Simulated scan of single mutants.
Amino acid sequence: MALLFIGIDPHSEEDKCPAAWVDTEMKGEPDIIFQGWLADEETQAECRKNSHHPDDEAVIRMPYRMIDIIRKACDAAEQAAVGDL
């Protein structure tokens, strides 16, 4: 596995670091990996109204200030999919 580190929350507290990576070895459809805060039960219940998540999935919360980093992760995944990374 080759994870390309994209970025970390620039305002993160120690040991609470939302971050993003791209798995660059997954040709065709690279995965974007997020580390974020687990959503509380109320948020998870609201999300389940639209999409049930099984035991191997989680609802995570990413701060607004991560938008630029998430965009970079999307761009990197797109580049990896076409082999430009």
Rank of each mutant, 00 (worst) to 15 (best):
M66Q: 01
I8Q: 11
K27R: 12
D75M: 14
L85A: 03
I32H: 11
D31H: 05
L3V: 05
E29Q: 13
G36Y: 08
A77M: 02
M1T: 13
F5L: 15
V82N: 05
R61P: 00
V22A: 11
V22L: 10
I67T: 10
Y64T: 03
N50M: 09
E41I: 05
A58L: 03
E46W: 09
A73E: 04
L38T: 12
F5H: 12
T24V: 15
D84P: 00
E46P: 00
I33V: 15
L4C: 02
P54I: 09
E42L: 09
E42P: 00
L3F: 12
H52I: 13
K27L: 10
Q44A: 15
M26Y: 00
M26I: 01
K16Q: 15
L85Q: 01
C74V: 11
A45T: 15
H11C: 00
D55A: 12
F5I: 15
V82H: 07
D40E: 14
R61S: 04
P18T: 03
P18V: 06
Q79H: 07
H11F: 08
G36W: 12
V59M: 03
D15T: 13
K27E: 14
P30E: 08
A19D: 01
K27F: 06
H53N: 04
G28E: 06
E41T: 09
A19H: 03
R48W: 07
I8H: 01
E13Q: 13
F34G: 03
A81I: 00
I70W: 01
P30D: 11
E13M: 10
K72L: 09
L3M: 13
E25H: 05
E42R: 04
D68F: 10
A39L: 05
F5A: 15
I70M: 09
D23Y: 06
D75E: 13
G36P: 04
P63L: 07
T24R: 15
R61L: 02
G36L: 10
E78G: 03
R61W: 00
I67S: 07
W21V: 09
W37Y: 14
D9L: 06
G83L: 08
A80W: 01
P18G: 02
L38D: 10
Q44T: 12
D68Q: 05
K49L: 08
D56N: 13
G7T: 03
Q79Y: 02
H52S: 12
Y64F: 07
A20I: 05
E29A: 11
E46K: 11
A73D: 02
C17Q: 15
L3T: 07
D15Q: 14
G36I: 07
K72N: 03
K16Y: 14
E41P: 02
